[in-house]
Design a protein around this nucleic acid. Structure first.
Lengths: 126, 126
DNA sequence: TCCATATTTCCATTATTATAGAAATATAGT
DNA sequence: ACTATATTTCTATAATAATGGAAATATGGA
């Protein structure tokens, strides 16, 4: 991951509202949540919500999908993995490090979402 | 890690100059680098450097130590680990996840720097 | 075509963060 | 005590980001 990309991702998450949005989207899985639902859950005016969603989108952390007149937003797990990877480079320079692997909690009948760390064994079966 | 703490840490790293500072400090190990050295390496005016170092310090990402008239700044590995942990919660909600462990590259005659993840096996001997 | 719904973009305002010169503080040496 | 060095805090200014009402766009249904 490029430094500039990492910086944008960090700035994307470094805001109360946006972090909350992302945290709502993560357990929602790949199909995401409608803008309206997000607005309601966080009690945000539409314009403000839109502003932050755009920000997250530009940071590559969420994706947008239209279905009828509602827009669904979903967390981008690969982007989050890439960010974590980047931070681990900055934390330990690649040495003596256990890499992280993240995936949607319950992938709803869909193929695996990212090929990063294909070599890494999974743990924490819960 | 508390959300508020994570937000501060994210904001701490979400700036070009501060991320560069942190990346200079990481390989420097626990004894850190003098403010003067950092100023020179990044070609920053003293006041600007001070501003960003304070920011990083308030975010808990770096520590300060005085020796004579020079102030040394060092990366806080535990804080970085905590941040990565936090992000992994937000990425996969604790399920199906390999936790990360980070440590200084070459601990210079000093005891291990953090007790987080004492249960986790190390990998990547290089 | 007309109306309702879902959501965005526009724009003005306010709030927050960054920049860097100059003055202040801390320490050390003579 | 005086001077030099290292670095910070003070302060004003400039730059960037966030907020939210109002107007605009997109879609779907009658």
């Amino acid at each position: 991951m490029e430094t500039k990309t990492a910086l944008t991702a960090l700035a994307g998450l470094a805001h109360d509202t946006r972090l909350s949005l992302f945290r709502l989207l993560v357990p929602a899985g790949p199909q995401g949540l409608a803008a309206g639902v997000l607005a309601e859950r966080l009690a945000l005016p539409g314009a403000t919500l839109s502003f932050h969603l755009k920000e997250l989108r530009h940071a590559g952390l969420v994706s947008q999908r239209r279905a009828g007149r509602t827009l669904y937003y979903a967390a981008d797990y690969a982007a989050m993995n890439a960010l974590i990877d980047f931070l681990m480079q900055n934390c330990c320079q690649g040495a003596d490090c256990v890499p992280a692997v993240c995936a949607p909690v319950r992938p709803r009948n869909q193929e695996p979402r990212h090929e990063t760390h294909a070599h890494t064994r999974r743990r924490n079966r819960s």
